[in-house]
Design a protein around this nucleic acid. Structure first.
Lengths: 133, 133
DNA sequence: CTCAGTGCAAACGATTTGCAGGGCC
DNA sequence: GGCCCTGCAAATCGTTTGCACTGAG
């Protein structure tokens, strides 16, 4: 685990949630994480999964994605990158293109916000779905 | 109203919802639209508001925003533009910078998706909140 | 007249929360 | 031993939906 707050305990639940999330590249929902983790910790509760995902995201150890659709998704990879979502199957994948600093500059010059961050969200049709159609 | 489908009727509810949405630049949630519309049509139901907002968005007459936070927001302005959300007060405002076609090109070359669209979502602190803090 | 659209209320799905007990530090 | 964290279940919140009725075309 990265660094924990002084008062943040290293419980087995927290550890397993983080391990499982880092294993996959699928940007799972809380429920999917729950299912993954449940195989190793059968008695874990869904509430615990939600609480830990939120906490880990707050600490910057994982990333919480707001990529549209109904459920939030989580990403164990915190390196800067964008995302694309398939409008057919809702799969979410990484887009590793260089973060555009130009974007924040242009935005800063046309509104009076102190800009903190930006994210680019692509949508499209994945190769799987385009062959299926 | 723009153009309607052959089978899409021009009800007063639909008309008022669109009018009210176009009046504001605040990117209201469904509930906020409901409150705005209710002043003119006191007996309208929340379900009707949801149904019409979804329908209008589907037809491309308005835009449905997935900008993070819990509720979806709606934008009566369909011209291409980005958005910024204040992390303090959750206000959402328009960012009228040129749409970057470069982004979609770079994304296309690093994943095998047929790219349909992209949206840039900025986050920051609005002038109101930064003076208040 | 017909059928898309409505009001209403109940249903739903994702997420949050209260609480009593458990286990990390 | 304190108190953060857990499991569990009930509560909450945004949104959707079933149904009988209404009104636009």
């Amino acid at each position: 685990m990265h660094r924990l707050d002084k008062n943040m305990r290293l419980t087995s639940q927290r550890q397993v949630i983080l391990e499982e999330l880092r294993k996959v590249k699928s940007h799972p929902t809380a429920n999917e994480v729950f299912d993954m983790v449940r195989k190793r910790l059968p008695r874990i509760g869904l509430g615990t999964v939600y609480r830990n995902l939120d906490l880990l995201a707050e600490k910057g150890i994982i990333r919480k994605l707001e990529v549209g659709g109904e459920q939030k998704r989580f990403d164990g990879d915190t390196s800067p990158h964008y995302h694309i979502r398939c409008v057919e199957c809702n799969r979410v994948e990484d887009i590793f293109i260089e973060r555009s600093e130009e974007l924040e500059k242009s935005a800063a010059s046309c509104c009076n916000y102190q800009i903190l961050d930006h994210h680019v969200q692509f949508s499209g049709i994945c190769s799987n779905c385009s062959t299926a159609a």
